[in-house]
Computed example of a mutant assay.
Amino acid sequence: MERVTLIMDLFERPQTRLTLETVSRRTGLPRSTTHRILDQLVRLDWLRHSASGYLLGPRALGLGGREIGHSTLRAAAAPHLLELAVRTKMVVHLAVLDGPEIYYLDKAGGRAAVDIPSRVGGRAVAHCTGLGKAMLAWLSPEEIDARYAQVIGRRTPHSIGHLDALHRELGSVRRRDGLAIDRGECFPDIACVGLAIRGPDGPVAAISAVGDGSSPVERIAPLVVNAVRAVTEELFDSTQPYLREAPDEVRHVPRHGGTVPAGGAQQA
C-alpha cells in the first residue's frame, strides 16, 4: 500500500502524464517493481496507459479527480465561450464525453440560452448531438462498437438509429476536419456545429454553437474552430496541426439521406 501511495501521489492533476522511468526515479522504487505495480493499477482502472505515458484512470477520476479536470476545462474555456457567444449571437456549449452520453460543463448565450433545452450538469445522448459526434469521431471503431448496440436509440426522426449509419456519419465528421453538424437530431428545430478539443490521447471535450433550425451554423464554423484552437493551446500549451480553417464542404453538409443547401442549418 505504501508503494501504491507513493506512485499515486505523483499524479497531482488529471492531465499529469508520467513515463515508467519518471515514476521509478521519483519514487525510488526499482524499475521492475514500478512496472509491476503500474501494470496492476492499469488493469484495475486506477491508471491508464497511453503512448505518452501513464495518467489517471476512470476509477481514480471518479473519486474527485473528474471534478478537478472539469474545473480546469471550464476555466480554460470560459472566456472563449463568452466571446464565441457574443460574436455569433448564438448559444454556446462546452461538454465532455461520458460513455454513450455527453455531460454539459458550461453554457453561454444570455437570454437566448433559455430557449435551448440543455443545462449545465445535464446529459444528452452523444450520437444525437454535434458535441457528441465531434468527440466520437476520434475514437476507434472498436470503441464505438463497445459503446453502442447494433440498433441505437433515436431522439427524433432525424437521429441516427443504426450503428453502421453512425460509423458513416463519424467518417464524414473526420473528412470535415472534425466539424460535426446536427439538425434536429437531439431536439426538434435546433441547429448546431461542434468541434472537439483534442489532447495527446484523443478528445477531452467539445465546443458547439447552437441556434434554431434556420440558423446558418455552417457559416460560423470558422469561429468555433478559433475558439477550440485557443482552448486547446491553453490546456496543452501547444498548437494542434489538425485545427485548420473550416473546409468549404461544411457549407454543403450531407444529411443522412439528402443534401443540405448552403445556409441551412443539425444540435449539440
Results as ranks from 00 to 15, higher is better:
residue 2 E to Q: 14
residue 8 M to A: 13
residue 9 D to P: 01
residue 14 P to I: 12
residue 15 Q to D: 06
residue 15 Q to T: 11
residue 16 T to D: 15
residue 16 T to A: 11
residue 19 T to M: 04
residue 20 L to M: 10
residue 21 E to T: 10
residue 24 S to K: 01
residue 26 R to K: 12
residue 28 G to D: 02
residue 31 R to E: 03
residue 34 T to M: 07
residue 35 H to N: 10
residue 35 H to F: 15
residue 38 L to C: 13
residue 38 L to G: 05
residue 42 V to L: 12
residue 42 V to Y: 09
residue 42 V to T: 13
residue 43 R to D: 11
residue 43 R to E: 15
residue 47 L to N: 04
residue 47 L to Y: 14
residue 48 R to K: 15
residue 52 S to G: 05
residue 57 G to S: 07
residue 58 P to G: 08
residue 60 A to D: 06
residue 60 A to V: 06
residue 65 G to R: 01
residue 69 G to Y: 00
residue 69 G to I: 02
residue 74 R to D: 00
residue 74 R to K: 07
residue 75 A to G: 02
residue 76 A to N: 14
residue 76 A to Y: 07
residue 80 H to Q: 06
residue 80 H to R: 10
residue 83 E to M: 12
residue 84 L to N: 06
residue 85 A to T: 02
residue 86 V to T: 13
residue 90 M to D: 07
residue 92 V to K: 15
residue 92 V to G: 11
residue 97 L to V: 04
residue 101 E to F: 14
residue 101 E to H: 13
residue 105 L to R: 05
residue 107 K to W: 06
residue 109 G to T: 00
residue 109 G to F: 08
residue 110 G to T: 13
residue 113 A to T: 06
residue 120 V to H: 04
residue 122 G to E: 09
residue 123 R to P: 01
residue 126 A to N: 03
residue 128 C to T: 13
residue 131 L to R: 02
residue 132 G to F: 05
residue 133 K to A: 05
residue 136 L to E: 05
residue 136 L to R: 01
residue 141 P to W: 05
residue 143 E to H: 14
residue 146 A to H: 08
residue 146 A to C: 07
residue 147 R to Y: 06
residue 148 Y to K: 04
residue 148 Y to W: 10
residue 149 A to Q: 14
residue 151 V to G: 07
residue 152 I to K: 02
residue 155 R to G: 04
residue 156 T to H: 12
residue 158 H to T: 01
residue 161 G to S: 11
residue 163 L to T: 04
residue 164 D to P: 00
residue 167 H to T: 08
residue 168 R to N: 12
residue 169 E to Y: 00
residue 170 L to M: 01
residue 177 D to N: 07
residue 179 L to D: 05
residue 180 A to K: 06
residue 181 I to N: 06
residue 183 R to P: 01
residue 184 G to E: 02
residue 191 A to D: 07
residue 191 A to Q: 08
residue 192 C to S: 15
residue 194 G to H: 12
residue 195 L to V: 12
residue 197 I to F: 01
residue 200 P to E: 10
residue 202 G to Q: 02
residue 203 P to R: 01
residue 209 A to M: 11
residue 211 G to V: 04
residue 213 G to W: 03
residue 214 S to F: 08
residue 214 S to E: 08
residue 215 S to G: 03
residue 219 R to T: 07
residue 220 I to V: 15
residue 222 P to M: 03
residue 224 V to G: 07
residue 225 V to E: 05
residue 225 V to L: 02
residue 226 N to T: 02
residue 226 N to Q: 15
residue 227 A to P: 02
residue 229 R to D: 10
residue 231 V to N: 02
residue 233 E to N: 13
residue 234 E to A: 14
residue 234 E to R: 13
residue 236 F to A: 09
residue 238 S to C: 07
residue 240 Q to H: 15
residue 240 Q to Y: 05
residue 240 Q to A: 10
residue 242 Y to M: 09
residue 246 A to G: 12
residue 246 A to L: 08
residue 248 D to K: 09
residue 250 V to W: 01
residue 251 R to Y: 14
residue 251 R to D: 08
residue 252 H to E: 11
residue 254 P to I: 09
residue 256 H to L: 10
residue 258 G to L: 09
residue 260 V to C: 13
residue 260 V to W: 07
residue 263 G to M: 08
residue 263 G to V: 14
residue 264 G to D: 08
